[in-house]
């Protein structure tokens, strides 16, 4: 599969209505299919929502660029700008990727909406008309989760799965505590949890000696460290102490003073990690229990 689209159509509008966005999408899809054997296929997998505060904009666009090719979804990026005058600005793109043989395309649609002023407080009413029927909705929330805020509550109401990266959070213990009640409302994916996968596998390889573990020592980010110790506590059903030294990624780990064999280096981009989460649909009870134990 080609990593880049064969072509891209784009439409930009200021102070738009949602009907303008839908019309632009139809027109661009028609234009994109010109000269091919049939209309461009639209996603048959999901709608991908992203809530992206200003400071996360660049990182979100970078992740999206790597994602479109693998998950040809309808992506709806919401950029809240509550301090500006009321209104919606839109940029809509249709990226056509060739199917094998090149006779038809599959279209990835990206709708970027800047929600200005009070529009940022009613996002569900804006995204609901744009969701593709019959497909699951994944909500990627960038940065801290503003528990109790109308925008988060509304967006959770339309999403089938919430995708976060708890590495992006500051007060982790509190955030995990507040996340726990949400597990009954929506399935949650945590990209920080995904990053621990090779280390969890390495730790599982230490069975049965690890069954009596009392201390986990980690040089790595707080989010991964807390999730790993929470996982050990919940799976082993015993108290495990955490000793953590901060580092940008997990560099080493020891159980009761014994080094954990370092797994093969698995360098995954942010797009790879998000892509893996978008393949999951059901609740991850192992993760939920790890969060509960990490925040207890």
């Amino acid at each position: 599969m080609s990593a880049s689209p064969v072509h891209a159509e784009e439409w930009v509008g200021e102070d738009v209505a949602l009907a303008d966005v839908e019309r632009a999408l139809w027109q661009m899809r028609d234009a994109s299919a010109e000269g091919t054997e049939g209309p461009d296929l639209r996603t048959s997998v999901m709608t991908h929502l992203a809530w992206v505060p200003a400071e996360w904009r660049e990182a979100a666009m970078e992740t999206l660029a790597g994602l479109e090719e693998r998950h040809p979804s309808r992506g709806i990026m919401l950029f809240p700008d509550p301090s500006a005058a009321d209104g919606i600005d839109a940029k809509v793109s249709v990226l056509a990727f060739p199917l094998r043989g090149g006779r038809r395309h599959v279209a990835a649609e990206v709708i970027q909406l800047t929600l200005r002023g009070r529009r940022a407080t009613a996002p569900a009413s804006i995204v609901t008309p744009l969701l593709v029927s019959n497909l699951p909705v994944f909500l990627r929330w960038r940065g801290e989760l503003p528990f109790g805020s109308p925008e988060l509550e509304q967006m959770l109401g339309v999403a089938d799965r919430l995708v976060v990266d708890s590495r992006e959070w500051k007060d982790l213990a509190r955030a995990y505590r507040e996340l726990v009640p949400r597990f009954e409302q929506t399935a949650v994916s945590d990209i920080a949890w995904r990053r621990t996968w090779p280390w969890r596998l390495a730790l599982a390889g230490l069975w049965p000696e690890i069954a009596q573990a009392g201390e986990l020592r980690i040089t790595g980010p707080s989010a991964e460290a807390l999730l790993l110790v929470g996982w050990l506590r919940s799976r082993l059903e015993r108290p495990v102490e955490l000793v953590q030294e901060d580092a940008p990624k997990i560099e080493s780990m020891a159980i009761d003073g014994r080094d954990v064999p370092r797994p093969r280096d698995e360098t995954s981009s942010s797009s790879d990690l998000l892509s893996a989460e978008l393949d999951e649909l059901s609740r991850d009870e192992i993760y939920e229990n790890a969060v509960r134990a990490a925040s207890a």
Binding site: L41, T43, S44, P72, L99, V106
Partner: peptide, 10 residues
């Protein structure tokens, strides 16, 4: 149509 490449881009 369900075309593999349209749903699973691997």
């Amino acid at each position: 149509d369900f075309i593999y490449g349209g749903a699973f881009r691997t």
